[in-house]
Design a protein around this nucleic acid. Sequence first.
DNA 1: TGTACATCAGTGAACGCGCGTTCACTGATGTAC
DNA 2: TGTACATCAGTGAACGCGCGTTCACTGATGTAC
Lengths: 204, 204
Amino acid sequence: MRYASTHKERTHQRIIEVAGRLFKERGIDATGVALVMSEAKLTNGAFYAHFASKEALVEEVIADQLRSQLELFQDAPDDLSGLEVIAREYLSPEHRDSCGSGCPSAALLDELIRRSEPTRQAYSDGLVRIIDTLQEHLPRRSPEEAKSLVLALVGLLVGTLQVARAVTDRGLSNSVLESGLAAALTLMKSPWPDASESLAQATS
Amino acid sequence: MRYASTHKERTHQRIIEVAGRLFKERGIDATGVALVMSEAKLTNGAFYAHFASKEALVEEVIADQLRSQLELFQDAPDDLSGLEVIAREYLSPEHRDSCGSGCPSAALLDELIRRSEPTRQAYSDGLVRIIDTLQEHLPRRSPEEAKSLVLALVGLLVGTLQVARAVTDRGLSNSVLESGLAAALTLMKSPWPDASESLAQATS
DNA sequence: TGTACATCAGTGAACGCGCGTTCACTGATGTAC
DNA sequence: TGTACATCAGTGAACGCGCGTTCACTGATGTAC
């Protein structure tokens, strides 16, 4: 072998990680293959020795990003306090201010909705795994309750972070994060209603 | 006048509305000026008689979209039941399945974060107006509580809709919508905690 | 041990294409006299 | 009333540019004999 047997594999992984950061910082469409390769200290041409197309890269990046996010969540304690730690870190100003190293869902969600079937499937599979993992933090609830709560929390965290990033007023942005966190903590300790119940019925 | 005095103005507005739909369906970067103009039954060249650049169109589209969204919310009753109606319609399968005619935040949020300063400002201004309007649905709460709750609800609705759109499994997608709605209703009737309070403290 | 050849990750110039943008022009209709 | 000109929303071909992709090549190192 002219290179170490792991050489190409490591280059491949480096491209995926660099692309992940650039996609999250700049958007997928706005990040060219040439830029990804130059940031990975390579030239254009080498790209197609690693990936069949840009979309194939996108698909691998998404799978890789969701795997990383899953591992991050798995580091937290396996109970309700772990879920609180996750929410606090997720809705922190630091996470808001670092798209490139942050959650792929918050950075790419509505771009992903419009991409190829395999890419969307890669995202969806990764998200299902994350949901399953988060559910394990709620052993005191029934599986149905736990799953429903986790789904709502995922939506809340992702949406709140995005809104906090979009708003131009820094003070308002901080309020968005704090409000989202307060809501997350409220949900974690609330009894879980049936969604078919209306507010009027529930409060009367 | 060779045309009715309102002719150009109406064409201008038609371009903005067509572009709004296309941007939300396909993404901003992925929607070319030529496509927008042909869908508006015009040719390329007329574009620059109406807008200084594509980004100027984006800015006007965003302002227009948030104005429409605000009007939609203003149609609901001015109390807590109105907020429930809004949440139910927002998290409906119909809204999930119609990006083009739906909420601009859900369709474009993370693309907006990366656009020009004036475009982001247009979005931010529109969102602030929406938040102020939604707050009026909560006369029973203190202004601080009402604002915090509304901010969290906005994050929850936007994030939940995006996740429901991204997930490839239809059953899971429906569960996401139902869970998000259940969470929204729970938040509307819960007492509002201080975000600095931790879950451990609150539950012990 | 020395030489010819095979391997293959990476190089870098080139390709066609669609993008945002420009511009000379059209043609319908109003105004001047 | 008739004719020459002005107005201006819209036309459609063309521009340079950067994109994703292709391909003939390089050069370091392994293998054959």
